Simulated assay, not measured.
Amino acid sequence: MVNHDGNILQEDSTFLNHQNRGLRYGDALFETLRAVNGKLIFWEDHYLRLMASMRILRMEIPMDFTMEFLEDQIQQTLDASTSGQTASRVRLSVFRKKGGLYLPKTNDVSFVIETTPLKHSFFVLNEGSYEVELFKDFYVASDMLSNLKTNNRIINIVGSIFAKENEYQNCLLLNKAKSVIEALNGNIFLVKGMHVKTPPLQDGCIDGVIRRKLIELLGKLDDYELEEASVSPFELQKADEIFITNSIVGIQPITKYRKKTFNKAVARDLLGKLNAAARFS
């Protein structure tokens, strides 16, 4: 089932057309989050990020677009869609209403909510192999727009095709200064001893919710030292661990980059703490 502006529709319903600005110009934002037994994990963080992103893109935020309203709309969609599963992936898309060319006729918005089932209620560490490579065909701009979850994801699409063609599980993206900023589907963290490093937002990475949560968690742990700083490709092979974070998998350890293999101990430890934080979010 799909929720379009508060109307619950069948998945095969035709409710968008060629005039949709998200389709035409990528004039859209989205949030992807987990729902477990009807509870939206880290919902406040997702909501606040969405509101901040809408302001940056000069979208008109409706008066009824409160955290409670959107949570209720998501819950209605889950109630209509679920068939006994306890965990779901939720995608909330917001796009400017149709009209105009590059200059919109209106800044008013519509929304679409989609849900799909997930296997696990909470984040589970992938114990399998996970090899990555740098994607160097195109580069990400180091500006505020790159921090947003917009529909402009063409680099991620082409990079995903490159990864599949070369039998990698993922690729790491670079900015125009040739610094590593993120993976195709999430933020990255490097571990050396008990030192944890992640690229800063100024380098152009997505302002990820799980990234925020891990930074918050690491700031409270005496055992770890956190650093937000640019990451050179040369640092990748010097790390003990590298892992990817996003709102669906939580933490995904990278096991191989070129000739270097990596551990998972810190990823496993932090995933446990992240699950604990999710339970009380």
Rank of each mutant, 00 (worst) to 15 (best):
M1P: 00
H4V: 07
D5Q: 14
N7K: 15
N7A: 06
L9I: 05
Q10W: 10
D12Q: 10
L16E: 02
Q19I: 06
N20V: 00
N20C: 03
L23T: 01
R24P: 00
R24H: 08
E31M: 04
R34Q: 07
G38S: 12
L40A: 02
L40N: 01
I41A: 01
I41Q: 01
W43P: 02
D45R: 09
H46V: 07
M59L: 10
M59N: 06
I61K: 04
D64Q: 12
D64Y: 14
F65Y: 11
F69E: 11
F69N: 12
E71G: 12
T77E: 10
T82S: 14
T82I: 09
Q85L: 15
S88D: 13
L92G: 04
L92R: 04
S93I: 07
V94A: 00
R96F: 11
R96M: 03
K98T: 08
K98E: 09
L103K: 13
D108Y: 11
V112Y: 07
I113F: 01
E114Q: 13
E114L: 06
S129T: 12
L134Y: 08
K136E: 14
D137M: 13
S142H: 08
L145H: 15
T150S: 13
I157V: 12
V158D: 09
S160M: 02
F162Y: 15
E167G: 11
Y168F: 14
N170Y: 01
S179W: 03
V180P: 00
I181K: 00
E182K: 07
E182T: 11
L184S: 14
L184I: 13
N187V: 09
N187R: 09
I188V: 09
V191L: 02
G193E: 06
M194L: 15
M194I: 12
T198V: 01
P200R: 02
P200F: 04
P200W: 04
D203S: 13
K213R: 07
K220C: 09
E227P: 00
E227A: 06
A229D: 05
A229I: 00
S230H: 07
V231A: 00
F234N: 15
K238I: 14
K238Y: 13
E241A: 04
I244K: 00
I244P: 04
T245M: 04
N246F: 11
S247G: 12
I248E: 10
Q252T: 10
I254Y: 02
I254D: 01
T261C: 13
K264Q: 08
K264Y: 06
A265E: 13
R268D: 08
G272N: 03
K273Q: 05
S281C: 06
